[in-house]
Design a protein around this nucleic acid. Structure first.
Lengths: 229, 229
DNA sequence: CTCCTATATTTTGCATACGAACCCACAATT
DNA sequence: AATTGTGGGTTCGTATGCAAAATATAGGAG
């Protein structure tokens, strides 16, 4: 390896990229609630840039589905209605199933071990009852599986979708039963991956995502019921 | 249905949308070759608009993977390397398989008949040996299946991916055998859809896409061999 | 008081302006 | 001869300006 390849470039990132990332984070983490209007003047003030790069960011986030552009009326954070969420999770399921298959075939043993390590870290958080930590590693495992599928396009698509799904995560909690079940499912997924059982991992991941869907939907329902009361 | 919903609005579409679509077409149809620089001054002249909406279009097409943004050095049409193409088609296959399943479940009979109509139009072009026309309807059929899956997120993802895949179409030709086979596969797909055979359509679409992949790759290989000579 | 209308204010869409980064050619230096 | 500096021209990135659309406000009719 050329040691010069390793040094990080001086890179000042373009403002529109910075703006895109910061806005995306704000949306995914829920600081900007679904439906919130994205006032240009306001945001330029907060971000300390002008409208041009900000508007470019809007366009990007719109194609990612995180914001909605209303012609002549600006941009709003797109709604995370249950319908949209189910749709996203259905697609995520298909993508993860594919990723699992590919990962079974092309992941290296070292990569699988890396996933195994994450799995145990996740188990630790589960044992402690730390939901946030659990989510973090859970998320990381799924992402790694997709990454180690070796399909960059797939990885990209998945990341895009996931921004949308992760938003729900910050809203919904998880029942103890579902949590335990999720952990068991992860055990099986890891086993299938280690055994490089293509057929099985596909089914497992599909099911896992389907369960995730119904669990999130249930939580979402409970949430809105609470809000109505 | 409110009849007023149906009339097309007077709407001048936003320029950035117009620009995005026109640029996308130029790229997908190969008028703008992979690697071509997208000179802002030139394009603003040709499109008759200013740099602002054009640059917004660049950003959108960049997230779709059709153009590449080189910081401080403008935008170029992204390369169509075979690796990226196979990856795209693999993902497309997974998405279409899912779409087929969903469409079997939730498409109306009218919608299926609409697809059937497109199918026969496609057959007409096949009979005439008109490849371009065939592609057009072939493409339309696949798009409709995804659309009638009723999953808007899926539809979006698919559209995003498809730009890249369609580009290959305009470059690669098709052997007579493969063409005939594709038509037969479409027959079966339509039959499965009509019979609402979820299992079968999933397999058919997966296979269809896999065949498409190998055919396109073969053609691409032949193409680059020809260019090298 | 409610609803409508006319006007003022805000906000967007697009164009343009300006400074900075980049590329190229050629001269200067080693 | 090869490499490094220098100037000019081009293209990009961002800020800003202006007109049109949309929203908010206020006033008046019912």
């Amino acid at each position: 390896m050329d040691p010069l390849q390793e040094v990080t470039p001086i890179s000042r990132r373009p403002l529109h990229e910075e703006a895109t990332d910061r806005l995306r984070d704000l949306i995914v983490q829920g600081q900007l609630a679904p439906g919130a209007r994205l006032n240009e003047r306001l945001l330029t003030g907060q971000f300390g840039l002008s409208r041009t790069p900000l508007r470019e960011a809007f366009k990007v986030l719109a194609t990612e589905g995180l914001v909605e552009l209303l012609p002549n009326r600006g941009a709003i954070v797109s709604q995370m209605d249950p319908v949209r969420l189910s749709e996203s999770l259905a697609v995520t399921g298909a993508l993860e199933a594919l990723a699992g298959e590919l990962a079974c075939i092309s992941a290296t043993d070292a990569q699988i071990n890396e996933i195994r390590a994450l799995h145990y870290e996740m188990l630790a958080y589960h044992a402690r009852g730390d939901l946030a930590g659990f989510f973090k590693f859970n998320q990381a495992i799924h992402l790694k599986i997709v990454k180690y599928s070796g399909n960059a396009v797939l990885f990209n698509m998945y990341r895009q979708l996931n921004g949308n799904v992760r938003r729900a995560r910050y809203m919904a909690n998880l029942s103890k039963e579902r949590w335990d079940a999720a952990v068991r499912e992860h055990d099986e997924i890891l086993a299938a991956l280690s055994a490089r059982d293509v057929k099985r991992i596909k089914v497992l991941l599909s099911d896992h995502l389907a369960h995730k869907l119904s669990s999130v939907l249930a939580e979402l329902k409970a949430l809105s019921a609470r809000q109505a009361a």
